[in-house]
Computed example of a mutant assay.
Amino acid sequence: MQSLLIDYREACKELVVGARDNPGKAAFYCLLLAGAGTCAYNSPTDRSFQAALMESSNQLLLLSPWVRSGRADQHVQKLITMQNQGRLRHQSLVLFSLMYAAPYDADTSIYDAQCKYLVPRWSDFPSRVLDVGFLGRWWVLGSKMKDWDINDDEFAHLPPELQKVTSQNLHSAENERLFELKFQPVVLQEEDIQERGSG
């Protein structure tokens, strides 16, 4: 036990001497360790994915099918179907997390699910990854839910130049000026009053 304490003391001394001799390298390693610690601490869990999926599903349910984004709706429906089938799996890789699809529920006892020769290959794993969790967020679900309340199919029948709206199409400064002009009092000139009186 005594020799172990001596070894730790010597290792700490070497760290302090190395940091004093090369402060730039020591600062870089400290930043690297702090970044890795932050990533590991904020790596999302299976429960956070379930909560994000439920929240996304609830947001989409508030809108009619004709208004919600088809892309977001299809992705969320696919994830909920896999969840109901028991096929969603979570894997923490310390700095980030993965959600992936398993071929069967863990409790399935059919031959295809139990045979070790029919297990999916590791080379197929990237195609089964559904989401990546990093720094407290699920990035694929977040990107699919972008503009979840805009159905692009509504605009499919329009000519191509009208399908995309740019800032030039909005003319917001002119619209604001006209909107404010609507509330200005009407000022009649002497000629206008005489013209109305004679008419």
Rank of each mutant, 00 (worst) to 15 (best):
M1F: 08
Q2D: 11
Y8R: 14
R9L: 15
E10F: 07
E10L: 15
E14P: 00
L15A: 13
L15G: 03
V17G: 00
V17N: 02
G18Y: 01
R20S: 04
R20Q: 06
N22V: 00
K25M: 00
A27P: 00
F28G: 00
Y29Q: 01
Y29I: 00
C30A: 12
L32H: 01
A34W: 08
A34H: 08
A34C: 12
Y41D: 08
Y41S: 07
N42T: 08
T45K: 04
T45R: 04
R47S: 14
F49L: 04
A51E: 13
E55T: 15
N58K: 09
L63S: 03
S64G: 13
P65T: 07
R68H: 08
S69D: 07
G70F: 04
D73C: 05
V76N: 00
Q77W: 04
T81I: 13
T81A: 10
G86A: 06
G86S: 06
G86N: 06
L88S: 03
H90R: 02
L93M: 11
V94D: 12
V94L: 09
L95D: 03
F96A: 08
F96G: 02
S97R: 00
L98F: 04
D105G: 05
D105R: 06
D107I: 15
D107F: 09
T108Q: 06
I110P: 01
D112K: 12
D112F: 09
Y117A: 12
Y117K: 14
L118K: 11
L118F: 12
D124K: 06
R128F: 02
V129K: 01
D131I: 05
V132G: 02
F134K: 06
F134M: 09
L135C: 12
R137L: 08
R137W: 06
W138M: 04
L141K: 01
G142I: 03
G142P: 02
S143A: 11
K144P: 00
I150R: 07
I150H: 07
I150P: 01
N151G: 03
N151L: 04
N151D: 07
E154F: 15
A156Y: 07
A156K: 14
A156W: 06
A156M: 08
H157W: 09
P159E: 05
E161Y: 09
L162V: 04
Q163C: 05
S167G: 09
S167C: 07
Q168M: 13
N169L: 05
N169S: 09
H171I: 00
E176K: 12
L181W: 12
L181F: 15
Q184E: 11
V186T: 15
Q189M: 05
Q194V: 07
G197P: 00
G197R: 02
G199C: 08
